[in-house]
Design a protein around this nucleic acid. Structure first.
Lengths: 345, 345
DNA sequence: GTTAGCACTCGCCGGCTTTGAGTGCTAACA
DNA sequence: TGTTAGCACTCAAAGCCGGCGAGTGCTAAC
């Protein structure tokens, strides 16, 4: 059944009100604050209809109404007004994002942080998935008499400390062989046989103790093929405590525990849509029990035209969707731009 | 005035009890649960004395007593029993700590995490302060047609992305010059003049556009001299919510905000003792207002025999000091061992 | 179709009482 | 002289109204 214009207006008014106050909203409030030119009685009738249609819920007889999941869904799809982010905010965002850049991961983490500042909700971001990241260079540097740092440069830089007594020159020699064999190849192409080959070459050419070598190669193999275990960053988790729906400490604790476990978050994020643009999962649309009275709004960002990660905002169901949508839209575009400037070729 | 043995026993019993229950403890409870062979009336008299001496506080007339800051201090200094950490816990800790090691920073962060698991309190750790970290190697690698990664290896690895169109060979050449000039020097030794020198050498030898070069050198200078801004890691902040003293959401929020701001933490951590072994700051001994009903227990860890960072546990004043002391003692020794195996020379 | 009016519902709040844990004091006891 | 049983007293917390008021649904009039 379709909603007529007036019902839409009323539904919108109720949701707007509730988003602001977190209190059930009554007919009188709507008739007074929103200039619909209708008496509270009329509103009441309409509200009764809207409740019957499933868009509103009455917590108890003598209270006002609050939106149901379906109500929010309708709001997000058809009612919500476009939010305009202030120009200074946009500029500040751009300049903060552009600051010195350590890595793509860091850039994305910062984007998540900025999203949390912009929206004042908790954000979750997944770092760029690095599939088929090609090895650009491998380096080995002794950092003390006892330890060597192994550095692998792909799209980003990974490093690992190895207990090994190797001189600077030995490192250079080993690195040269590694580079000759591995440079330009993507991690998946590298098998244990590849490493075997390297091992025998090294044994022949260099006078390094084989035992040490095995150790080093083990680390190389490990680091190179490492299941590009996408990092997940959570920012501003504390903002959860600020919403009345989490006045209950135990509930808040549950959420914190949930957010602390990256595997939860990976799954949560993975379940969200792959399509373009900003996407919302409202309340019960989320799978994990604890998330059923939260909403999760996500957007994909891309590198070389391919979606490689997500930025998500987690907040109460009555979050300011308009603002969140606008913020994520903005941020995803900015991060796309930024990443674009570092990719290509 | 000194405490006789019986008073000590009673004080200890009260504090032990209170640490467990978080409720004011009454004379009857002590006389029953702790086998002192004294009636509640006698305990009452002693408690009155202990209160007068400043070790106990009575929240209101008809409640039991809780320890004062002085009470806790006395407990920590003289009463607390030695806590023994289980052997499996020790072994688990050692194996978890020894896992693949990305950097010293990471190792320490993990130590903080493990401390939080062991104690179930919030932990704060400061990464090894890198003063006089000597430059082992500088590397430049093009990662796309548009970007170059600049890598600086000191005791750890820092990297930075630069927008620059440079070929692999150009990068190698520039890096060679940088290495020749900078390798083996510590960050503080490098002045803007040094960089000027490199600039002119590069301009002479190589046919790189000067403008691009300036950009690159700017980054080098920046990355090299970067105020080795010690990282601070907080783990298990959520555990705060589990203690009845933070049932009040607003109080919890304050703490979270405090913990979110690294500058607060740096200062907090800096204020703690430099001496050997585990150190406690109890309640009012802490400076920040919000920390006045928390305790902070810290320990230094060292690299090359010099204290370079701290691991701290933050919890309610009635934390399980014995356990925390034992845990930090253990962890600091383990991390010292671990770091030791990567230093030297 | 809209609205004023009205009876009704029910959670919330403030004040009241009750309960009980815990105290200090006193007097008797070893 | 130190210890203990007994007792009156205190006071926060919990339970228990009762009134308030926001909000409703229904009805009747416009």
């Amino acid at each position: 059944m379709d909603l007529n214009d007036r019902k839409k207006q009323i539904l919108q008014a109720i949701i707007d009100e509730y988003i602001g106050s977190a209190e059930p909203v009554g007919s009188r409030a709507i008739s007074k604050k929103h200039e619909l030119g209708l008496s509270s009685a009329t509103i009441r009738n309409e509200m009764a209809d809207l409740e019957e249609m499933g868009y509103l819920i009455q917590p108890h007889t003598s209270a006002g109404r609050i939106p149901s999941d379906a109500g929010y869904r309708f709001y997000v799809n058809s009612l919500m007004k476009r939010y305009r982010i202030g120009l200074e905010a946009v500029e500040r965002l751009q300049s903060e994002l552009a600051g010195r850049l350590q890595s793509l991961d860091r850039a994305v983490k910062r984007a998540g942080f900025l999203a949390s500042v912009l929206t004042d909700y908790t954000t979750v971001v997944s770092a760029p998935a690095g599939e088929r990241a090609e090895i650009k260079k491998i380096d080995m540097v002794p950092v003390s008499s006892e330890a060597v740092t192994l550095i692998i440069v792909t799209r980003n830089v990974r490093s690992r400390l190895i207990n090994a007594k190797l001189s600077f020159d030995e490192c250079e020699n080993i690195a040269a062989v590694l580079n000759a064999r591995l440079r330009g190849r993507s991690a998946e192409e590298i098998t244990y046989d590849t490493i075997r080959g390297i091992e025998s070459e090294l044994c022949e050419k260099l006078s390094v103790q084989p035992k040490l070598l095995i150790n080093v190669l083990h680390f190389v193999y490990d680091a190179v093929t490492e299941a590009e275990d996408t990092e997940i960053y959570v920012e501003n988790a504390k903002s959860i405590l600020q919403y009345p729906e989490y006045r209950d400490i135990d509930k808040a604790r549950e959420i914190f525990s949930f957010l602390d476990d990256k595997s939860n978050l990976k799954q949560l994020i993975a379940e969200t849509g792959e399509n373009e643009g900003v996407n919302a999962r409202i309340g019960g649309e989320n799978d994990p029990e604890i998330m059923k009275d939260c909403s999760l709004v996500t957007v994909n960002y891309s590198l070389d035209g391919k979606a490689v990660g997500k930025i998500g905002v987690i907040g109460p169901k009555r979050m300011d969707y308009a603002k969140v949508f606008a913020s994520l839209d903005l941020i995803s575009h900015e991060i796309d731009k930024l990443l674009g400037s570092f990719s290509g070729g």
